[in-house]
């Protein structure tokens, strides 16, 4: 398999998941398109490093994670690689259910580290072992982080609920 074939296969298999990952963590279609294009540009440049099988997706998540946080991002933007994709995404933004705003508020209240593991576990559906691969930590550390994040979310939800009740009574 040539590098081109391999990249095409990786792109086609994991585009939806990376698109979803990026859309969940960005607030504008431009940013989403940037994260997608930068992630796959990195994969193309490093195609020999992309692991086989399911681990390829975890590797891509790891790259996308760094792209999201990386101040230097922009090689693909400079080259204008995702122009049509930007337009496409701008026309298709998801809508948030209003009645779950209190959950969203509790989630937003969590520290970034907690939000990250919770999102990987529940939105990407990853196990602690898989989360560990994305974050570059041990499975034990990932499990601990997840456990603590769940407890903090439960506490934040309780606060949000009591706040909602208090506001309703006022």
């Amino acid at each position: 398999m040539t590098h081109r074939d391999r990249f095409e296969a990786v792109y086609d298999a994991y585009y939806p998941a990376i698109h979803q990952y990026a859309a969940r963590r960005t607030s504008s279609p431009d940013d989403t398109a940037d994260v997608i294009s930068e992630t796959f540009l990195t994969a193309w440049r490093r195609i020999g490093d992309v692991p086989e099988g399911e681990r390829a997706l975890l590797w891509l998540y790891g790259v996308a994670r760094r792209v999201l946080a990386n101040q230097q991002r922009g090689a693909s933007r400079r080259a204008g690689l995702a122009e049509r994709l930007r337009d496409e995404l701008a026309a298709d933004r998801p809508v948030r259910p209003v009645d779950l705003e209190y959950v969203r508020a509790a989630f937003d209240e969590l520290p970034e580290r907690d939000r990250e593991v919770m999102a990987l576990a529940h939105w990407e559906g990853l196990s602690s072992e898989q989360i560990a691969k994305v974050l570059g930590c041990t499975a034990v550390a990932a499990r601990t982080r997840l456990h603590r994040a769940r407890k903090r979310l439960a506490a934040a939800l309780e606060r949000q609920t009591s706040m909602t009740i208090a506001m309703g009574e006022a």
């Binding site: 086609d12 585009y15 939806p16 998941a17 698109h19 979803q20 859309a23 969940r24 398109a33 997608i36 995702a82 049509r84 994709l85 930007r86 337009d87 496409e88 995404l89 298709d92 998801p94 948030r96 259910p97 779950l100 959950v103 969203r104 989630f107 919770m118 576990a121 529940h122 939105w123 979310l153």
Partner: peptide, 17 residues
Amino acid sequence: MRAIDPTPHAPEQGPGA
């Protein structure tokens, strides 16, 4: 957590992709 997933459905590969 699942209910507040901002992008619950995997997008298709459109022409832009």
